[in-house]
């Protein structure tokens, strides 16, 4: 048991250290998040009333795409330098490896996006009543996105050009999170209670937490052995 936990902690620490060593990759999804969000006022209309109506959906779509963008690298470097194979050969369950990697990844992508999100909210004229809803829904929703994305990353890790493919595989699965996430923000803006949406986002997170690491682990084994 203790060795399993140790493996979890080691993978987690290693991933964080490696991520901090490559700072540009760390910031890239955040910059992407900002750029995507600023494209909408330029492309659609800078009119505040109009934008504030669109804001909940826009921030969520931007967060979804930014998470997706960062997903591709989740297993890639470990696959390329062979350490993924080593991890899979260890007697410890694979889903723990996946879970620790996703957790490390989420801290640097999903959580970072959640923290930056209010800035986007301001840029898109999201009413200030919507801010807590935005942050809470992103806090509960982005881990689900990371977990589902991990399955796509695991399935495409052995492919040279997995970039577009992973979005094809994963985006349809993101739809429920998008629906309840943006609805939560909408509800917060109009002053309706949030708990229902947050409960649903939480339920999806629990389901993803239970199932996604297993699926991603199986997918990793298939990709690495093939």
């Amino acid at each position: 048991m203790s060795s399993t936990l140790q493996l979890f902690r080691q993978t987690f620490k290693r991933d964080l250290t490696l991520a901090f060593r490559r700072k540009s990759e760390l910031v890239n999804p955040l910059i992407f998040f900002l750029i995507v969000a600023s494209l909408f006022p330029i492309g659609v209309s800078p009119e505040p009333n109009f934008l504030s109506q669109l804001a909940p959906g826009l921030v969520w779509v931007a967060a979804l795409l930014a998470t997706l963008l960062s997903m591709e690298t989740l297993f890639k470097s470990d696959y390329e330098d062979g350490s993924l194979e080593q991890l899979l050969l260890s007697p410890q369950p694979v889903f723990l490896v996946v879970l620790s990697k996703v957790l490390a990844h989420w801290l640097l992508s999903g959580l970072a996006l959640t923290i930056v999100a209010p800035l986007l909210g301001v840029m898109l004229f999201l009413p200030s009543e919507g801010m807590p809803g935005l942050m809470l829904s992103l806090l509960l929703g982005t881990p689900t996105l990371s977990l589902i994305g991990a399955i796509g990353a695991a399935l495409t890790v052995g492919l040279r050009r997995g970039g577009v493919l992973i979005s094809l595989l994963v985006l349809p699965l993101y739809i429920p999170v998008l629906i309840f996430g943006s609805s939560a923000v909408q509800a917060a803006v109009t002053g309706l209670p949030l708990d229902g949406y947050l409960a649903l986002l939480g339920a999806m997170l629990a389901l993803a937490l239970a199932l996604a690491p297993i699926a991603a682990g199986a997918a990793l084994r298939i990709s690495v052995s093939g």
Partner: peptide, 16 residues
């Protein structure tokens, strides 16, 4: 490998 990977994806889709 293609068959196995697709099967995993199809099952994930089925749950979803």
């Amino acid at each position: 490998t293609a068959a196995k990977s697709t099967a995993v994806l199809a099952l994930v889709g089925l749950v979803n």
